[in-house]
Amino acid sequence: MSEQAKNNQKMVIKLLVIVVGMFGFGFALVPLYDVFCDLTGINGKTANSAAVYTPIEIDESRTISVEFITRTNTGMPWEFRAETTRVKVHPGELSTVNFYVRNPANKQIVAQAIPSVSPGVAALYLNKTECFCFNQQPLLAGEEASMPMQFYVDPQLPDDISFFTVQYTLFDVTGKGDKLAVKENPYLREQPESGI
C-alpha cells in the first residue's frame, strides 16, 4: 500500500507541475499576444515610438486616403478632434495632421491617446515620425493645444488597400504612471485667460 501511496504522490506532483505551468501560461499569453499582434499587425496597433524617415521614392502611381477619427473614452471630458479628417497621400510621402484638444475641466488632466488602425494590417505600413500618442499629454484647466502627427505610408502597402482609417481614443490617465508625462504640454496653443 505504501508503494501505492508513493506512486500516487509522484503522479500528483507531476500533475501539479502541469497546473502551475498552465497558470503561468495564462500570463504568458499576455506578452505572446502582443508579440503576435506586432508581427502580424492584426489588431491595428501602431508602433509606440517614432519611425525615422529616410527619403524614399514616392510612389505617385498610387493615392491612399487616410481618414482620422477621434473619440474620448467614457469620463474623459476633453474636446478632441482632428483638424483635417481626411488626407490623400502617395506612399512614401510625408504628411502632417494636427489634432485639436482642449481641457474644459477645472483641473489638470493627463491624457493618453491610443491609436487603432482599420483594416488592421495597414498598421504595419503606417510609419509615424512624430506623434502626440507617443507620450502622455497634460493640460491645465482650460488649456488647449494643437498636437501634430507626422507620418508616411510604406510603399509596400498591399495593393488592395487604398483607404484606411486611423482612430485615436483619448484616455484620462491622470495620476497613473505620470513619470512618462512631459511636465508641460509642448504643443500648447496659447495661455488660457486666468480664471478660465
Binding site: L15, I18, V19, G21, M22, F23, G26, F27, L29
Partner: peptide
C-alpha cells in the same frame, strides 16, 4: 480541467 482551470484563475 487541469489544463484550463489554471488559465481561468489567471484571467
Amino acid at each position: 480541467l487541469i489544463a484550463v482551470m489554471p488559465v481561468l484563475a489567471g484571467a
